[in-house]
C-alpha cells in the first residue's frame, strides 16, 4: 500500500500529515505519522485494541482531540499503537487503536511528544482527497 502519511519540517518540532479518501482515513493516517516520530510503526504488533471517543463540533479541534487522546492512552497504558480506525458522526469520533506494550529494547523509542499544537492545523478536502495536519511539540 502506498504510504498515506508524512512528516514535514519545523525548526524546533515536527509536522505530521495524513491523507485519505475520507476525513476518517486522513485522521487514522495522521495518527501513524504521530507514532512514527517516536517509533517505527512496523515494529509494533497489533496485539491489543483500545477504544477512543471524543467530540468537538469543529473538525480541526476534533483532530487535535483525537491525537491528544491517543497520546494520553499511549502514555498511561505504556503502549505504542500502529493501526487505527476512525468513525465520525455529528462531531463525535469513535476510534480504535491497535498496538502492544512498550518494549524499549524492541521499539527503540526516540522522543516523547509533549503535545499536539494548533500550529499549521488543517483538515481539508480537495478533489476528493482529505488531508489532516498539524505540528506536534517535542
Amino acid at each position: 500500500m502506498r504510504k498515506n502519511w508524512e512528516h514535514y519540517s519545523h525548526t524546533a518540532d515536527m509536522g505530521i500529515r495524513g491523507y485519505g479518501a475520507s476525513m476518517e482515513e486522513a485522521f487514522a493516517a495522521a495518527a501513524v505519522a504521530m507514532v512514527a516520530i517516536n517509533v517505527d510503526p512496523e515494529k509494533i504488533q497489533q496485539e491489543q485494541k483500545v477504544k477512543i471517543t471524543c467530540s468537538e463540533q469543529d473538525r480541526e479541534l476534533l483532530f487535535i482531540a483525537w491525537l491528544s487522546n491517543l497520546l494520553y492512552e499511549m502514555a498511561t497504558r505504556k503502549m505504542f499503537f500502529s493501526k487505527f480506525e476512525v468513525e465520525i458522526k455529528d462531531g463525535k469520533l469513535t476510534g480504535c487503536a491497535w498496538g502492544e506494550k512498550m518494549d524499549l529494547k524492541k521499539h527503540k523509542p526516540v522522543v516523547e511528544i509533549k503535545g499536539i499544537s494548533y500550529s499549521d492545523l488543517k483538515v481539508t478536502q480537495e478533489n476528493g482527497k482529505w488531508t489532516a495536519q498539524c505540528i506536534v511539540d517535542i
Binding site: 519540517s9 519545523h10 525548526t11 524546533a12 515536527m14
Partner: peptide, 9 residues
C-alpha cells in the same frame, strides 16, 4: 541556544 535546524534535517 534555540534550534537552527529541524529534527528531520
Amino acid at each position: 541556544a534555540g534550534r537552527a535546524m529541524s529534527r528531520t534535517q
